[in-house]
Amino acid sequence: MATRTRRPERREEPLSRQRIVEAAIALLDTAGEGALTFRALAERLATGPGAIYWHVTGKDELLNAATDAVIATMTADTTSTAGTAATTPQEAIRTLALGVFDAIDAHPWIGTQLARAPSQSPLLRVFEHLGRHIQTLGVPHPAQFTAASALLNYILGVGGQNAANARGHHQHTSRTEFLDTTATSWANLDPDEYPFTRNVADQLRDHDDRTEFLTGLDLILTGITTRHSPIDPAPS
């Protein structure tokens, strides 16, 4: 008696762009950008690549949609958290910046995508929110673009570098082991050529990435507010 071939189980939910994007994010998080193919995505979704192409035209569009989904969720969360009357613009910027930092840390591929597509919506979401807070700070209009850009470049640069360090250096060792090894190497550098680096080696060993990120952000915010703070009129 011939045996019947078992058909694959049917999907419980109809295929949609949202399901495709969610599956792409999961694949990117676990395997990285290089593993994101329509064939691999089709296997996750129990469908054919042709069905995915009905909703997404190609990998670039899919990467942009996945990045936008993560950033949109993050900006919505940080906006609701910071959107109280008692929140200062500086606090709102810190909340937004830390949200982006944590998003890149959780999804390392996002940093590359944000830097790759400066004119597309994921990056513009962050830039728009930063710009609104810069306006609330009272920064004059001619200086608003520069101030928002400086903040954005710092957030993406440090967030992206932190994610790259986690991927490149911590795969076979813990963060503590990596920092201890690097700090020891710094401490043993030539004292005449690297006096400063030797002197801060212990600070490298004990530093916290998020704390250092926020400290650097505060330095930029202090510079912006100091340079562009309103000048009280002279008494008459």
Results as ranks from 00 to 15, higher is better:
A76S: 14
T67L: 10
L63F: 06
I71D: 15
L36W: 07
T73K: 15
T37Y: 04
D68I: 01
T57L: 03
G48A: 07
R39A: 10
A69D: 13
A82K: 04
E61R: 09
N64T: 15
L63A: 00
T79F: 12
T78F: 10
I71M: 15
E43W: 01
T78W: 12
G50S: 11
T78G: 09
S80D: 08
A51V: 00
V56N: 08
W54C: 04
R39I: 13
G58E: 14
S80E: 15
L45R: 04
W54M: 13
A72W: 14
N64P: 00
A69V: 05
T81D: 13
V70L: 07
V56S: 07
A40P: 00
G48I: 08
L45N: 07
A65S: 09
L63N: 09
T81E: 14
T78E: 13
A66I: 12
V56M: 07
R39G: 10
K59P: 11
L36E: 08
N64E: 15
T67D: 12
H55I: 09
G50T: 02
L36G: 01
V56P: 02
A72H: 13
L45T: 12
S80T: 14
E61P: 00
T57E: 13
W54V: 11
A51M: 07
I71C: 10
A72N: 12
L45K: 06
Y53E: 07
E43R: 04
L62N: 01
L36R: 06
R39H: 15
E61H: 03
D60T: 10
T57S: 14
A69Q: 08
T47E: 02
T67R: 11
I52A: 00
Y53R: 10
A82H: 05
A76Q: 05
D60P: 06
F38C: 05
T75E: 07
T73A: 14
K59D: 10
L36H: 03
T37A: 04
A82E: 04
L41A: 05
F38P: 00
A40N: 11
R39P: 04
V70H: 01
R44N: 09
A46P: 04
T37E: 01
